[in-house]
């Protein structure tokens, strides 16, 4: 019944005369819808709570943690989880909990930067090639095909190996392998609307091509792309962690989830599980959060297509 009050998500049968409060600004309507989605779907609410936790760890982490994540302690090596060390200590006596929390910032920076880069370039390229078509479309399409012709993680490995083993290059490599998704998505979303009635009408109203693309088509293509961004964030985190797991990018002793799991893996066969499990769980939780968020975002931006 809530949705009905919004006048947004009604089945066709009763859509004839929706009831909408008079003169409501777009922003307040949108906020109300966000609140409605959050309260009606506990899973989305959970995702937002988790996101808040991860973001605060990333921003405030170094100030919050009980130990210096780089401080070694010879007397405290390989201690299992306890009250003093919630997640135990590693082979050098460093506090695993502190390291896991502090690592959130680096992992988020890598994935946010990579996704931002590929979103900006990918959606611009995709939108232009989808709208204008022609040689520009062919060129962009060929570029994407070439990137997609590689298994993506393998291409990222090759790029980092060639550009040099640094964190910046991890970001570029992750951005490049993500690029085709945004290009194709933006291209498809723009292409289906290119000859829609409302675009033709905008042409008749005297809008130029660029104006139509920027003001009429792109805002309508944005919602499905937002969902993609969120799902992609999870994937970007996984990729970056995978690269550092095999020893690319981040170097010890910098705390980062992938490399911590890799170091912990050496001790798992002898039963020291906490070294690998806690950073692994943190990684999983972060990816899970962004995936849940993707579904939640879809509900907010695209109420008609809920599953």
């Amino acid at each position: 019944m809530q949705a009905r009050k919004d006048g947004l998500a009604m089945p066709v049968a009763i859509q004839a005369e929706p009831v909408v409060p008079k003169r409501e600004t777009g922003v307040s309507r949108w906020l109300r819808h966000v609140r409605h989605v959050l309260t009606s779907n506990p899973v989305t609410l959970l995702a937002f709570v988790l996101l808040t936790v991860i973001l605060s760890a990333a921003i405030l982490g170094p100030a919050l943690v009980p130990y210096d994540p780089l401080q070694t302690n010879a007397s405290q090596q390989m201690k299992p989880p306890s009250w003093a060390h919630w997640f135990g200590t590693d082979q050098l006596g460093r506090d695993v909990f502190s390291r896991v929390v502090v690592a959130a910032r680096l992992d988020l920076i890598i994935s946010v930067a990579a996704v931002a880069l590929s979103f900006v370039f990918g959606s611009a390229l995709g939108a232009v090639s989808g709208y204008f078509g022609g040689w520009c479309d062919k060129l962009v399409g060929r570029l994407c095909d070439t990137i997609m012709a590689f298994p993506l993680f393998v291409l990222a490995m090759g790029i980092v190996a060639a550009l040099g083993n640094t964190v910046d290059n991890i970001i570029y490599a992750t951005a490049i392998i993500n690029l085709p998704f945004y290009v194709r998505m933006a291209r498809a979303e723009v292409n289906v609307r290119r000859n829609a009635g409302f675009v033709q009408a905008a042409r008749l109203s005297g809008n130029s091509d660029w104006r139509i693309l920027a003001l009429h088509i792109f805002p309508n293509a944005l919602p499905p792309m937002m969902v993609q961004i969120s799902l992609n964030m999870g994937w970007a985190i996984l990729n970056a962690a995978g690269l550092s797991f095999i020893g690319l990018g981040v170097r010890p002793p910098t705390p980062e989830w992938g490399i911590m799991v890799a170091e912990g893996a050496n001790y798992i066969v002898s039963g020291e599980w906490w070294l690998a499990v806690f950073p692994g769980l943190a990684l999983m939780l972060a990816v899970f959060t962004f995936n849940l968020l993707g579904d939640g975002l879809r509900d907010i931006v695209d109420p008609q297509r809920r599953t």
Partner: peptide, 22 residues
């Protein structure tokens, strides 16, 4: 499907080793 895409492969592998080997 939701949990599966969130699992880092290397982490799943390590968990399985811990449980089924150790």
């Amino acid at each position: 499907t939701t949990a599966g895409v969130s699992l880092p492969t290397f982490f799943t592998g390590i968990l399985l080793v811990y449980v089924f080997y150790y």
